[in-house]
Amino acid sequence: MLGAIEAGGTKFVCAIGTSDLEIIARESFPTTTPAETLLLVIEFFKKYEAELESIGIGSFGPIDIHRASKTYGYITSTPKLAWQNFDFVGTMKQNFDLPIAWTTDVNAACFGEYVAGNGKGLASVVYYTIGTGIGGGALQEGKFVEGFSHPEMGHMLVRNHPADDFAGSCPFHSHCLEGMAAGPAIEERLGKKGQALDHDDPFWEIEAEYIAQCAYNTTLMLSPDVIIFGGGVMKQHHLMTNVHRAFERLMNQYVEVPELIKYIVTPALEDNAGTIGCLALAREAKLHS
């Protein structure tokens, strides 16, 4: 059996699955403090300890991904104060002497789509989650695109839509993608959540503009085979039509891209992308241990 931990800023999703990436059991816990949340996580996996071979963790960040670092496996400078400089992998290792894969939550979702979703069989896959925050992950030939750290693509700068004078809700950058297009930015602007808006609300054209700018920037920087947009905001299924239209206008035929209904898409695995990605990473960790 393989273990998966999708560690989000709002909730942790823990799962047990097979090497074929079939989810056998799953539970979720609210993200409170490390002591409270990890106690529940450890209790969950202890029930399967005799069969458990490895664990994959996809965590909210920023996180330290460099194995040679003294703080490898830590959540580092997160705005969630209780979690700053928390030794996540070390805590799990104290309780489970197993191979543990460690990456960002959005990288995990990207890997899930790469092995079993809309990125399967493709060389280059980019995944964004647009929800409470915005994060991005990229894979090239099965390897995560990263350098001194993991990408923070959700904070790329975007230009205001002509009908939008909002400066953004991000405390670090004005006019960044997360600050302009994440769920809290919608609510701060309009006084209500995105799911409360009608499908034909004019705001969705504004939202689509920012997502299309993200796809435009990603296309010109990475030329991926597919760009996948997941997260709660993208559950507004009508939104993708507006994104495609805005992307075509922005690109203005500068480069030829794949057919948009296959190029800019939502996750085939839907809400399971992160969990399946963590299971797949656990499988990799077991193979290379």
Rank of each mutant, 00 (worst) to 15 (best):
C14H: 01
C14Y: 00
I16E: 02
I16Q: 02
G17F: 04
T18H: 07
D20M: 12
D20V: 12
E22F: 08
I24W: 00
I24F: 08
A25F: 06
T31L: 14
T32Q: 14
P34F: 12
P34C: 13
P34Y: 13
P34H: 09
L40I: 00
F44R: 04
K47G: 00
K47N: 06
K47R: 15
Y48G: 01
A50C: 03
A50F: 10
E51P: 00
L52C: 01
E53G: 14
E53C: 14
I55R: 02
I55K: 05
I55M: 04
I55Y: 06
G56Q: 15
G58I: 05
G58L: 11
S59E: 10
S59A: 15
F60D: 08
G61K: 15
P62V: 12
P62Y: 01
I63E: 02
I65Y: 08
A68Q: 14
S69N: 15
K70M: 06
G73S: 09
A82K: 08
F86H: 07
F86G: 02
F88W: 02
V89G: 02
G90E: 00
M92S: 01
K93R: 12
K93F: 04
N95T: 01
N95Y: 08
P99H: 05
P99A: 03
A101S: 13
W102Q: 05
T103N: 12
T104N: 15
T104L: 10
V106A: 10
A108C: 04
A109V: 00
F111V: 03
G112Y: 04
E113G: 07
V115G: 09
V115C: 08
G117I: 01
N118W: 01
N118H: 01
K120M: 06
K120I: 02
G121I: 09
S124F: 13
S124T: 13
S124E: 14
Y127P: 09
Y127F: 15
Y128V: 13
T132G: 11
G135D: 14
G135V: 09
G135H: 15
G136T: 12
G137C: 11
G137T: 08
A138K: 06
A138N: 06
L139C: 07
E141W: 04
G142T: 06
